[in-house]
Design a protein around this nucleic acid. Structure first.
Lengths: 342, 342
DNA sequence: TCCAGCAGCCGAAACGTTTGGGCACTCGAT
DNA sequence: ATCGAGTGCCCAAACGTTTCGGCTGCTGGA
């Protein structure tokens, strides 16, 4: 038994396929008496008719499907949030998300994008694993696209990224407001936008309090627990009056390392040293003792924004100018910040 | 400019649409001279022709698309791995994955599954967030389906779950092989398959070494860091000769709590107490000092298996009997297990 | 010379929609 | 009676494939 089609509804209701289609799609121009509408709708309901979206897509030249392309779905614990945001936004507009996890290989990536285009996706969200600057794959040429968590080297591509500097400033400001004056930044050593932008944010927040970041209050290490451990050890292992009372760490994994360093030195968090992280990785931030105060990346919001602007540009007939968005990174307070000792 | 179609290739090559289709699909029955094949292929290559998959799907009554339905894409840090596995398996068979993150609401879930069916997906992977027993939503009736990380209450549904007992046994065996005799299990308190199956595994492994699990060597708490902290504290806070030298924790978050408890009591890991976790959450397991020895859940493999068996059943003409699979949970060694003290 | 058989190719229908164009009525005004 | 303007509905083409059932024209055997 095949699915029920428009024809079935037409036959049952006694009208033509055309009329049924008009009624079901509620075509504005056409005037159709209520009696007809009712009979058609009754027939459709009785048969539990739903349109075949493939046929619809073929005829309408629009699949109501958008592709989500990234190389990190499997690896990043945050990918899920952007996907979720993207999906919610798509659903709200009657579309659906097709996932494509590209390998590292550029050729493969282009092939996979073309595969999506063969399937007539209406547009594509190209998601980077972490905030970076990139040049979009060639296969994206000529189809509506939005970059997520990335800026393009060339202009002309809409994109959305987190407000790294603002987030970092919020973290430092939180420390300042608790009375801290000696504040260290345990930074990542990679040369990526997040490192430099967060450093900018730290400097801005300190400057706003008439403070500056002393060279011995800045360390750079690999962005994992071990790097955080080393960085924190460097700044904390000194006499109390020279020791920072507040630590801002590049991310939560490094903050975890900072906890370990503090423990190693016999310092308590937050009584002896306050710590703020970045990323809001639930798994870590909520598990630590005390809970880690940190800054959240707006993954969900970026996903939503990406799909929303993507669909705006699909819906609009003439070509829109690209949009560039920067979304805020809110502070998430837990228990790792207190007033400085003494 | 529209995409290039079969017609374009036909016109350029000088053959009919039919012939072009035969050549490009390499239809077995038809005899077509090489000269023709070459001309058609040249034309197709010149125009960079690729078929419109919507039209193809409509005609073939097969979309080469499979739906991945779950309620946890956003929340679970592991979802990505199953998705990745599913996607890899799908890609290997020329299909693509459509993601659908259902809400908690059952109605919504059914609607979303129907939406997938309207889009003519060939089959559906229904993924649970954690190992459980469930009854599949009504909307899945009549379409090839595989349950991932879940068993069905009714028979007739193919499904794949992790070998919880085997994984737990491996964890305890690892401790036994390092010479531990007093081993405690810091269990989760929820009544879910994972808790009872892992407990079974613990008992089996101990029994194989002629040991039993003493009541005071088993605790049950909420499955987060705090619960692990409490559980570990309970078993560890006693005189050394009664204290377990090895701890197996329900999951890595609880293991993290156990580290905290050990620290609280002045016990070093692994010199004074060895700890094994479950889940292999990189974020935690690799960040801890020392690194956490744990048991990995086969998310990726389950994803692959689900799609593979799904596509087997789609491809086979007659209805296959359901398959039930249990995949192994391998031990991942890091640094938290050593010989017991003394 | 005829015809069967076959290699090589193609027309047209079908998949399930949407939609431009138009037909057959009715009704009120002339 | 005739006309014009609506109203209510429908035919048929189109979207881009696949595939059934042929149709040609050549070859070779009788």
């Amino acid at each position: 038994m095949g699915r029920t089609t428009l024809r079935d509804v037409a036959e049952l209701s006694g009208f033509s396929v055309t009329t049924v289609s008009y009624v079901l799609n509620d075509i504005p121009g056409k005037r159709i008496p209520d009696s007809t509408k009712e009979r058609v709708q009754a027939a459709a309901a009785q048969l539990a008719y739903t349109p075949n979206r493939l046929a619809q897509g073929l005829r309408r030249r629009r699949s109501d499907t958008i592709g989500f392309v990234g190389d990190h779905v499997a690896t990043s614990p945050h990918a899920g949030q952007s996907i979720q945001g993207a999906q919610d936004a798509a659903a709200a507009r009657g579309s659906i998300l097709v996932l494509m996890n590209t390998g590292a290989d550029e050729d493969l990536e282009n092939r996979e994008i073309r595969e999506l285009r063969d399937r007539q996706v209406d547009g594509i969200v190209y998601a980077a694993e972490y905030h970076r600057v990139l040049t979009p794959p060639a296969a994206l040429e000529g189809i509506p696209t939005v970059l997520l968590d990335a800026r393009s080297t060339e202009s002309g591509w809409s994109s959305v990224v987190p407000d790294e500097a603002g987030g970092a400033a919020a973290a430092v400001t939180e420390l300042l407001e608790h009375g801290h004056r000696r504040i260290a930044f345990v930074n990542n050593e990679d040369d990526i936008p997040a490192s430099s932008l967060r450093l900018d944010g730290v400097r801005q927040a300190l400057a706003a309090a008439d403070l500056a970041l002393a060279p011995d209050m800045l360390t750079q290490h690999p962005s994992e627990a071990r790097g955080g451990f080393l960085g924190a050890l460097t700044v904390l292992d000194r006499p109390a009056h020279e020791r920072p009372t507040g630590l801002f760490c590049f991310n939560d994994r490094m903050a975890l390392g900072a906890y370990q360093a503090a423990q190693e030195l016999g310092l308590r968090v937050p009584q002896d040293v306050s710590i703020v992280g970045f990323d809001n990785q639930e798994l870590i931030a909520a598990s630590l003792r005390p809970g880690l105060t940190t800054v959240a990346l707006p993954h969900y919001d970026m996903g939503r924004w990406a799909v929303d602007t993507l669909m705006d540009s699909i819906d609009s007939t003439r070509k829109e100018r690209p949009r560039y968005e920067t979304l805020p990174c809110p502070l998430v307070r837990r228990g790792s910040v207190a007033a400085p000792p003494g």
